[in-house]
């Protein structure tokens, strides 16, 4: 059987996404026990290879693997062979000597997962590659949405606000949200909305006042590099906040706010929203654990519906 990689949301069908989300739900009881561990992946080896700083994704994958009793190895770019100039291909070959079942990788460059996958027998899970894809973030976002609004997301309206151009989360979310029948609008300054993205089947809006009947407002992090001299994506963070910063006053009742984190208080998100418990941000983090357990599990056992209950 060919190995299963998860590099892009496009690698999954709607049925597979729904099965993953159902599987994640079936893991929830485990996370509520005193002893939060099942033997499902005992004896399996999972490598977490992070070439870029990450707190929540790497800790979430690490904990997910441990909850499933897999053995894990964590490698970071700093202090490793990477700093000594080893190429990705050579790192892949070296790590493969341990016979891992899965390599989870974050990398600053699009196309890194394909290079890794060509050079290892292990399944590759993309934990973020350049500005390309972050499929596990999309899946956990979908899970958080299901936990909040129920299983049927068809016809729901979501507005993704901010730096679409540089966001792998936005690209994965657009694909995943559309796959489950949601209506997606992108909101942000024209400098940060890539030319031609409307062909992904989204609407584009430059004015935050037009959030309209969105059920969910998905905020993206604004990075400080975007205002560097010569970049000119934004005149200032202050101006961004004035035009696109989200505050309670800009929301209609019932609209829920999501954010992949880490947040920039006072830039894309006001403290009134960051601190209230109406937002879904903490639920997203929690969902990450269950969803990544499901992804690791399905990557190894496959996407057939043979009841995950028995294995648990």
């Amino acid at each position: 059987m060919p190995k299963r990689d998860l590099i892009s949301i496009e690698d999954l069908s709607r049925e597979q996404v729904e099965l993953l989300l159902d599987t994640a739900e079936s893991f929830l009881p485990v996370l509520e026990r005193d002893i939060k561990k099942v033997p499902t992946l005992r004896g399996r080896t999972i490598v977490n290879l992070f070439w870029e700083a990450s707190t929540r994704t790497s800790s979430s994958f690490d904990l997910a693997a441990k909850r499933l009793s897999a053995d894990t190895i964590a490698l970071k770019a700093s202090g490793s062979a990477v700093e000594k100039g080893e190429t990705l291909k050579d790192t892949a070959i070296t790590l493969s000597a341990y016979g891992p079942d899965i390599i989870v990788m974050r990398h600053p460059s699009a196309g890194a997962c394909q290079v890794l996958s060509r050079n290892t027998e292990a399944s590759v899970i993309n934990a973020g590659d350049g500005k390309h894809q972050h499929p596990t973030q999309c899946l956990l976002d979908l899970f958080a949405l299901r936990q909040t609004f129920g299983r049927d997301l068809d016809g729901m309206k979501v507005s993704i606000v901010g730096d679409i151009l540089h966001s792998r989360v936005a690209r994965s979310d657009i694909m995943g949200f559309k796959l489950l029948g949601m209506d997606v609008t992108l909101v942000g300054p024209p400098t940060l909305i890539p030319r031609g993205i409307e062909e992904m089947g989204v609407k584009i809006e430059y004015d935050l006042a037009n959030l309209g009947d969105a059920d969910v407002i998905y905020l993206l992090r604004i990075q400080k590099e975007r205002i560097k001299e010569g970049a000119n994506f934004l005149p200032s963070l202050r101006e961004y906040n004035r035009l696109y910063g989200m505050s309670r006053a800009r929301l209609r009742p019932g609209q829920r706010v999501m954010h992949p984190g880490p947040i920039n208080r006072g830039v894309e998100i006001g403290p009134d929203i960051a601190d209230d418990d109406e937002n879904l941000i903490a639920l997203q983090v929690f969902s990450g654990l269950a969803v990544r357990m499901a992804i690791l599990y399905r990557t190894i056992v496959g996407y057939t519906d043979a009841g995950s209950e028995e294995v648990l």
Partner: peptide, 18 residues
Amino acid sequence: GQMHEGPASARLGLGGIP
């Protein structure tokens, strides 16, 4: 820039060369 700027680069998240 990494590839032509257009719908494909928007989808792939690669820097566009207009």
